[in-house]
Amino acid sequence: MIDFRPSSAQQLLVSTAREYLRRHCPIEPDRRAGLDVIQLWRGMAELGWPGLLISSGVGGSDGTLVDVILLVEELGYAAVPGPFVPSAVAATSLLLAGGARQQRRLTELATGDRIATVALVEERGSFDPAGLTLTAASGRLTGRKLFVGAADLADDLVVVLRDGVVVLPSDRRGIARVPLQAIGGDPLFEVRFDDVEIGADDRLAVTAGAVAAALEAGALARTAEMVGAARRILEMSVEHAKTRVQGGRPIGGHQAIQHACADLVRDVDTARGLLYAAACDASDVAAAKAYASEACLTVARRAHQIFGAISYCAEHPLHMIHKRILAASLDFGDTTLHLERVARAIGLEA
């Protein structure tokens, strides 16, 4: 039966997250300046969040992908920095497909004591595994991966190659992590591999289907993050429209502002519905992410117009949330990649 309401357990997860993050992850840039990402991560780990996808038998918290999506929506709402999506969603999904040999690693990921990330993108700048060139067939790996999230925090790099997946400790000889300077969002890295030795134990026995599923989980999580962020922007914008007085009345009394706010509601509600449907397997992840990227970025840009000059200042949180949406819209597949998948799904001949 079609039902948009989270279960009572899911509602508890969401309200716990909302309250915890309200206290430990302030949105105002000046209060956030001293935020310790690792300390925040440990707090999240105590709540069992990194282990949501992992079964309790291995030390996880027995959640579902829908639970993860609802949680990440809250992470987006609070603009939480850190390795949750690369580690607890994408890398964990891949390692879960890797069989019994990964159990110890998964246990440590579940407790948050270990952090992993996925390295995939190459020179083409695409998350499509079909076009990858790097290989470790010879037992050595040379080349580079781009736009790797959380590489600085990660103990393990899950590296997707042309012909398989390897899991490497990030401090192995020959691996270098070079920070890129993006306008915002979590730090991104270029990871260089210079004749890195690859042993049989480094190889992760997973199918191409498992890789695709893990990337989809990552894409879905980034969609949830955008939706949560756009919800926050909507709330902030409506609050501002009610309280900012110009010409003797709140600007929210003007039709121009009212209609802009109505469009924010449309964009947030539609992106959210498509997200939940995709999380429950009722529609494409590709459609949900492509739609949310456009809708949530539109929400952010329109909000700048509602807030006016103050939102141009570094001290205002809007630009920080906006930049996080931008980063999320690209991670695990940009709009070009996902719209091409949708194009094929609706039957357009390639």
């Binding site: 529609s283 492509a290 739609y291 719209l339 357009l348």
Partner: peptide, 9 residues
């Protein structure tokens, strides 16, 4: 494709 996503939404 973008239109298909809007119709689903």
């Amino acid at each position: 494709a973008a239109m298909a996503t809007e119709l689903a939404a």
